[in-house]
Write a protein that binds this DNA or RNA. Structure first.
Lengths: 344, 344
DNA sequence: GTGAAAGCGCTAACAC
DNA sequence: GTGTTAGCGCTTTCAC
């Protein structure tokens, strides 16, 4: 066996010596680059195997790619992100890319810090779910790193790709379903943004769809939008206030499933029956909707498809595509007990 | 303003020129290293600010630290990891470290690949939750990167730290509580390991505690351990089989909360009342336990504390500590409706 | 207290 | 098809 370099680390130099070739040859094999004979490739591969060679990502990052992709999510609570990630993994399965996650806790400063961290680490590209930072900051970083955004509606800027479901359509489906089931006073429970950008976000799009559908159903006078922070405390407080108000809503449409679960909890706490006294609908159709104790009607936006497409677009963009692409999934309503037809 | 290097990137060289000092001086300021005058430090800091300098992580990784920590979790479904992460963030708040996550999907090959990826990227240290790989592989990687394990009981090997709750004690609390509430046939629903290492894992420890407590309560003849894969399908199938069996358990102790939620669902589907016909207890006391529709009794192991301690230990270890430390939290039972006293 | 210079492991342009 | 070599941005001796 060839001697390791003095540091003890197996580098491409060690491999080159062992295989009796140049470092350039090894580098080419490593990158599946053009211009190496099968014989040489074979010898190099064998040496790598034998020596247990592992490419040093930092060194690669100094000149070329790091084969690392960043995935930035708002939190670790929402199981919807697991669906998205499953889709991304499918797309990346047979590639060299590794996916590393950042969790921003829905805070703009953390979002910024993590994106900077990913850029500093020379990641090849990033996928960001529902960014909250202002558009000019998004423009700034997507000029510096290949970017795909999920859950962000903005086609004006052509330096990043987007992957979305049709959130307006999803909200419309919800309202139409509730109206058909006999509900009139439908309230939309959204997320309070706390000084962050609201435009382009899924919650805003859903609100647009909700308002339009209520209008179209002749229920404009019942339009009501309530916002709450994401913590259990805040959501429950908002729900409690709504459900104890004089003109209590007949149905609550929650911007995402786990908010709806909190509403179900408060309804039960107040002795309200669902859907007898109150219908509840969520969004994302996460696995919790199916549990009998929830039986939550929800909008399915195919998280796996979103993730798969996002990863595909990112790899394409890293590969050199510069024209922006915008992928849209058509949402689908999944009816469950929480919004069954209203008893007369 | 000093000219940027030809590439356009602001490097320590740019900063050095702007501040009229050497690159070595800048590097020292960057690392808060010993041997720089306040005046020089001030000038360098000002230039960094002015030029918007950001250290290039890959380049740092070639020689020194990357200021990146890895956090490996089994999945994105279990909200318990969010608690742990919150604790870690608290510990890392005022440091330069950035935390990046890997998700192994509970599969040993993914676990291996992600740990390798983290090592290749010269991360300064990693925290791994409930590793499933064989102990010799754990020993191998923890020799190459500072390591803290959460949810892994092994003190024999002294090259990594561990952070745990007392899982045997937690399981004992559950059994004692159920027995006191009038339940006798208590079944433990664990996780099937699919050829992976079971020893040292929390599920195994809880099983030990469960068996011992049942024995101590004189209920050895009712000891029953059932294992299921982590998918909703498999869990529900296992639960259905259990609850339809001739000698149906009076109580099911689930190794983690979200398994318990599935059991609650199946119980309801089969028309069993909880806790009338069946008591259910979980573990981790995640936020879902509190929802009225679940009202799930669970064991609280203070995820935030676990995360905080893990991060603290990791930073210490990176700082040079070599003696292993093992931190243990005492678990606490949180009683809710799912296990109230058994009706006579 | 400060700076010059030698690498760290790899990629890519270029020469052969 | 293969090898030589000049960096990439930073850290770290070692002079001064």
């Amino acid at each position: 066996m060839a001697p390791k370099s003095k540091s003890g680390r197996v580098t491409i130099k060690t491999v080159a010596e062992d295989a009796g070739v140049s470092v350039a040859a090894v580098s080419k094999v490593l990158r599946d680059a053009y211009g190496v004979s099968d014989a040489l490739r074979g010898r190099v591969r064998a040496s790598m195997q034998k020596l247990g060679y592992r490419p040093h990502a930092a060194a690669r990052g100094m000149r070329g790619q790091t084969y690392t992709l960043g995935f930035l999510i708002p939190d670790l609570h929402n199981p919807f992100f697991a669906d998205i990630m499953a889709g991304m993994n499918t797309a990346l399965e047979r590639t060299q890319y590794q996916m590393l996650l950042g969790v921003s806790d829905s805070a703009v400063p953390n979002e910024k810090a993590l994106i900077d961290a990913m850029i500093d680490r020379q990641m090849d590209g990033i996928i960001v779910i529902g960014p909250r930072m202002p558009i000019d900051q998004i423009r700034d970083f997507s000029g510096r790193i290949s970017t795909v955004l999920i859950g962000y509606h903005s086609k004006e800027i052509d330096i990043f790709d987007t992957v979305n479901n049709d959130d307006r359509r999803g909200a419309t489906l919800v309202v139409q379903h509730l109206v058909a089931a006999g509900y009139r006073r439908v309230t939309y429970l959204s997320q309070s943004m706390h000084g962050a950008m609201k435009e382009a976000m899924v919650t805003a799009e859903r609100e647009v769809g909700y308002r339009a559908a209520m209008q179209a159903a002749g229920l404009a006078r019942h339009i009501q939008v309530v916002e709450a922070l994401q913590t259990s405390r805040d959501i429950q407080a908002a729900a409690r206030q709504l459900l104890q108000s004089r003109n209590r809503p007949e149905a609550i449409f929650c911007w995402t499933d786990f908010i709806a679960l909190e509403v179900l909890s408060v309804a039960r706490e107040l002795g309200l029956s669902v859907p007898g006294d109150l219908a509840v609908v969520g969004y994302d159709n996460t696995s919790y909707c199916d549990l009998m104790q929830n039986s939550l009607t929800s909008v399915d936006q195919s998280g796996q498809v979103l993730g798969l497409q996002a990863a595909r677009l990112l790899v394409e963009r890293i590969g050199g595509r510069t024209a922006a692409e915008h992928f849209i999934v058509t949402p689908r309503l999944v009816e469950r007990a929480s919004s069954r037809h209203r008893p007369a």
